Amino acid sequence: MIKKEMDSCSSDLVEEIKKDYRASADIGLKRCMQCGMCTSNCPAARHSSYDPREMVKMVLDDNPEILENPDIWNCFYCYTCQSNCPVNNSPSQVNQILRQKVLQKGGKTERIYKFITYGYSFMEFGVGLIPTDFFEIRANDFGEKYREFKDELEDIREELGLGEYILTGEDQEEVKNILTESGFKKRLKKFKEAGESL
């Protein structure tokens, strides 16, 4: 009885999210019981005002204000919420879809502008590198050990018998081709231009 009632929950926003290609075919969005397991284990909720349970509630209520809520940009996409959900919902996937909706309308570009260098490092090296703007923040958060780790990373990898993590040759070209053909390069350029006009 309860499951049937939850499954009957429907809104335009819920239907849009369920039909989005980013949503798992079996996403339990309509079955959400508002139990709060997602929020209780969410690292973003612990360190910011982001609340995955409340975000899902706003989606279920078809509340368009969720698209204007700056807290949706604090999700880390770690999927802890999904792994703890008793009904197989994924607030992380819901969040990704909401962000894409905002970006497709041309909003909140400033929130991702700092991450553009991450995308360009994928294009150039075949691997995402942490933007240099974040190095000092991470060093302050993690202390001197982080600086030492970054300075000694190549020696550590060699000692562990690991090869280069930056792609070269055909592998690098293959990644560039995939990112170009998939529209990633074009979209990256669009965000860069939008960010430069802020």
Rank of each mutant, 00 (worst) to 15 (best):
M1R: 09
I2P: 03
K3F: 08
E5K: 11
M6D: 09
C9Q: 12
S10A: 09
D12E: 13
E15I: 01
E15Q: 09
E16M: 08
K18M: 13
K18A: 01
S24Q: 01
I27A: 06
L29A: 02
L29E: 07
K30T: 12
R31V: 01
M37A: 14
C38E: 08
S40K: 11
P43D: 02
A44K: 04
H47C: 05
S48Y: 07
S49Y: 06
D51M: 03
M55K: 03
M55E: 11
V56I: 14
K57H: 13
L60E: 02
E65V: 08
I66M: 04
D71Y: 09
D71F: 05
W73G: 02
C75G: 03
Y77Q: 10
T80D: 10
N84Y: 09
C85H: 05
C85L: 04
P86M: 11
V87E: 12
N88G: 09
P91E: 11
V94H: 10
I97A: 08
L98V: 12
R99S: 07
R99Y: 03
Q100Y: 09
V102S: 09
K105V: 07
G107Q: 09
G107F: 08
K108S: 15
E110S: 14
Y113K: 09
F115Y: 15
I116E: 00
I116P: 00
Y120S: 00
M123K: 00
E124M: 01
V127S: 06
G128F: 01
I130Y: 03
T132D: 13
D133C: 06
D133P: 00
D133R: 10
D141I: 08
D141M: 13
F142D: 04
G143F: 03
K145T: 10
K145R: 14
K145S: 14
R147C: 05
K150D: 07
D151W: 06
E152D: 15
D155S: 13
I156H: 11
R157A: 13
E158P: 03
L160G: 06
L160H: 10
E164N: 15
L167A: 14
E170V: 13
D171A: 15
I178M: 11
F184G: 08
K185H: 09
L188K: 05
L188E: 01
F191W: 15
K192A: 08
L198V: 10
